[in-house]
């Protein structure tokens, strides 16, 4: 799959008409194989734009650096859900963004080229091949994927005993170096002051050590419960390969079962944790 030409055409139109002053898309990385984000301000940079199955990054986080500025952005279906999330949470103004949505068959594993066909794990479980939100669509809308089991990774984990799960996560979190890359890349993590850096009250110290790492990793996961749009960016960037999507998807599954809600499907429905209905008793006795 290669949509580079279509993306360039759209970018040219939007820049030359003055609709936007920046197009956020992708270009080839220095290894000659992968992709990296590209900000295009000038028509003569348009030819650098590419789009193929190496375009892994969720670019929507960058919209937060361009608040109030007319911007075009290339999004895959999972990324498009992040824009809904950000509109719902009043972080992005819909009329300032021109969304170039791409029909996506999935992106390939890191280091592989466009033709390899070896999809990332999350993409193999993905239910959404057409963006939920766009102004322009590139590619033919796909008949939705028929993935029999949405959460094979999570149910696999649920089958383990509590002790085994505890041991697994203790091991994983123990090697976290608290770089906070997972937070920096996440479209749902935009607090001006993250709890982890707050001094008063101090929720957690600065020690890079198992007990404090666990507080950091679990609290971040809970802040994304019902808000994570499952782009897998946190897991992709983690320099010590902690399977963060497994944790976030578990919470996503819980929220889906309890509230019949998936984050970012539309921009209107409020998040379960920002509303409270009287009839939600959730097992708390009268």
């Amino acid at each position: 799959m290669d949509f580079s030409e279509e993306i360039r055409g759209k970018a040219k139109e939007l820049l030359e008409s003055g609709t936007v002053d920046c197009v956020i898309g992708y270009e080839r990385a220095t290894d000659g194989v992968g992709a990296r984000p590209l900000f295009v301000y000038q028509p003569n940079d348009i030819d650098r734009l590419i789009f193929d199955q190496t375009c892994t990054h969720n670019l929507t986080k960058y919209l937060l650096n361009r608040k109030g500025k007319a911007t075009a952005i290339v999004v895959k279906p999972c990324d498009s859900r992040a824009i809904n999330l950000l509109i719902n949470e009043s972080q992005v103004q819909r009329d300032k963004v021109s969304i170039i949505g791409v029909v996506c068959p999935g992106v390939v594993k890191a280091g592989l080229d466009n033709t390899s066909g070896e999809l990332q794990d999350t993409c193999r479980m993905c239910q959404q091949h057409t963006p939920v939100l766009y102004d322009f669509l590139v590619g033919e809308p796909a008949s939705e994927a028929d993935v029999p089991d949405t959460y094979p990774d999570v149910t696999g984990m649920e089958d383990k005993s509590a002790g085994e799960r505890r041991a697994f996560w203790e091991e994983q979190f123990s090697r976290c170096i608290r770089c906070y890359a997972c937070r920096q890349v996440c479209p749902g993590c935009y607090c001006p002051e993250c709890f982890v850096e707050r001094l008063d009250p101090m929720w957690v110290g600065i020690r890079i050590a198992p007990e404090e790492n666990e507080v950091w990793n679990t609290m971040r996961a809970f802040h994304l419960a019902g808000r994570c749009i499952d782009c897998n960016e946190c897991e992709r960037v983690c320099p010590v390969n902690i399977p963060l999507s497994l944790l976030n998807r578990k919470l996503g599954k819980e929220v889906e079962e309890l509230f019949n809600f998936q984050a970012g499907i539309d921009a209107e429905t409020a998040m379960p944790f920002s509303t409270f209905e009287k009839e939600e008793k959730l097992g708390i006795s009268e």
Partner: peptide, 28 residues
Amino acid sequence: DRLADRCIHCNICSYVCPTCYCFDVRDY
């Protein structure tokens, strides 16, 4: 500024680097 457009300030470069040595100090 143009280069930093795409930087997500994730700290990874510093943490993997043998010669980056910034630190924070706190009293417990």
